[in-house]
Design a protein around this nucleic acid. Structure first.
Length: 175
DNA sequence: CCCTGATTCGC
DNA sequence: GCGAATCAGG
């Protein structure tokens, strides 16, 4: 696999976001974590402050903005540090995701029309960041439906999030 | 033993 | 330029 401009840009973005080299390699595909690190060096990108990082990749979920945060935003999900075992090998990661999508049975998604099931690392500026499921469980994911540039959520979740409590009383807000 | 990034060096 | 091998560390 060669380093196209797109792949290089993605590498830069993910590295800037603080993803580990192995995670970036998994997302790019076709490259090892060594290749990623090597490329980072050649690009003269700023390395990590200290080598070795933390064994378990613990990353806090980024909230939109304090002012834009909806009153009923599932605080439990976003406040807690999500400690997934995704630090694993690229292969492991793929298997994990595959099994997840095959076996996943919507427990309470009856109200939610559609949702891609994205892992934290798959979120971009344009994907709905509505958390679904228990952050401590393996099936935790994000809605991931394409969101407008203005909102951190897709149309459906934006309504749930920003609607006054009285108005959304009817909707079963079970995430 | 799992992981992390850093460096080297043959290709 | 590339990245596997290796190193150094948590």
């Amino acid at each position: 696999m060669n380093w196209t401009d797109e792949r290089v840009e993605k590498l830069k973005r993910l590295w800037a976001e603080g993803l580990s080299a192995s995670q970036i390699a998994a997302q790019l595909g076709g490259v090892s974590r060594n290749a990623v690190i090597g490329k980072v060096h050649r690009l003269n990108l700023p390395g990590r402050a200290k080598a070795g990082g933390s064994a378990t990749s613990t990353r806090a979920v980024k909230r939109p903005a304090p002012s834009a945060r909806p009153a009923n935003y599932p605080a439990r999900s976003v406040t807690r540090t999500v400690t997934r075992t995704v630090g694993a090998t690229a292969l492991k990661e793929e298997i994990d995701i595959a099994a997840e999508e095959i076996e996943f049975v919507p427990p309470s998604n009856v109200v939610v029309p559609i949702s891609r099931k994205l892992a934290l690392t798959d979120l971009t500026e344009r994907t709905c960041k509505w958390p679904m499921g228990d952050p401590l469980k393996d099936d935790f994911h994000f809605c991931g439906v394409d969101a407008s540039e203005a909102s951190p959520y897709c149309g459906y979740h934006a309504r749930l999030a920003y609607q006054p409590v009285a108005d959304r009383r009817k909707a079963a807000v079970r995430v």
